[in-house]
């Protein structure tokens, strides 16, 4: 809160917040999608998955990357979280608004805040579990997923939803692309990533059970 107060005195604080939200958001979406593609290598076999994991370790990419991602993750929460309706009164307005006005947009935003908050909690747990069980191998992953498949299913859905709509909204806000095709493209990517994720989950479950 102190940090926020100091920043708010700066007339450009809100500009910086907005830029931080944009860049951290894009970085996180990039990370999430790459992460899911990496995870999906399990579809091509455990060996490839293990090799990939090991080579990321060997080249120290994990050791550099993970702390950076954590930092970006926190910055994103700080900058985007400033829009969360904090007071009870505000939350009531949001709900009333969403219920009175038809159309999906208010709901998109309500879900965005809910999924955002949920991701904050779930992803932290995920990271903690992964880091304490280092290194990542097909076997340990399969073990985790067998035990917590519902946890990962929820995280996958939340993450993809949040990322898909988040990136769409950022692009719309900055006006780099017209809305209609942009919405279409972001939906297609989300569906592809989601399919990959679900398939990977399924394969891990099979592995764990074997």
């Amino acid at each position: 809160m102190l940090v926020q107060k100091i920043l708010t005195r700066n007339p450009k604080a809100e500009l910086y917040y907005d830029l931080v939200e944009l860049f951290t958001g894009i970085a996180l979406v990039g990370f999430l999608w790459t992460h899911m593609v990496f995870v999906a290598t399990i579809l091509l076999g455990s060996d490839l998955f293990n090799t990939l994991s090991k080579s990321l370790d060997d080249y120290y990419l994990s050791y550099v990357g993970i702390p950076i991602i954590v930092l970006i993750f926190l910055m994103h929460i700080l900058s985007a979280g400033r829009r969360l309706p904090t007071r009870y009164q505000e939350q009531k307005i949001i709900w009333r608004h969403a219920k009175m006005l038809k159309g999906t947009d208010t709901w998109v935003w309500v879900f965005q805040t809910i999924t955002g908050a949920a991701i904050f909690a779930l992803a932290s747990i995920h990271m903690f579990v992964v880091l304490t069980g280092w290194p990542i191998t097909a076997t340990t992953s399969a073990g985790r997923i067998e035990a917590f498949w519902w946890f990962y299913l929820v995280l996958l859905l939340l993450g993809e939803y949040h990322a898909g709509f988040g990136i769409y909204r950022q692009f719309v806000k900055w006006g780099w692309f017209p809305r209609k095709p942009l919405g279409y493209v972001s939906k297609v990517i989300t569906v592809i990533i989601l399919t990959l994720g679900l398939a990977a989950l399924w394969v891990f479950l099979q592995l764990g059970g074997a």
């Binding site: 007339p11 917040y17 947009d105 208010t106």
Partner: peptide
């Protein structure tokens, strides 16, 4: 000064109900 803040340009969350 008029609009470079959350009251103005940066307050928008990109839901675009206005546009619709």
């Amino acid at each position: 000064e008029v609009i470079g803040s959350d009251e103005g340009a940066f307050g928008c969350m990109g839901l675009m109900a206005c546009d619709d």
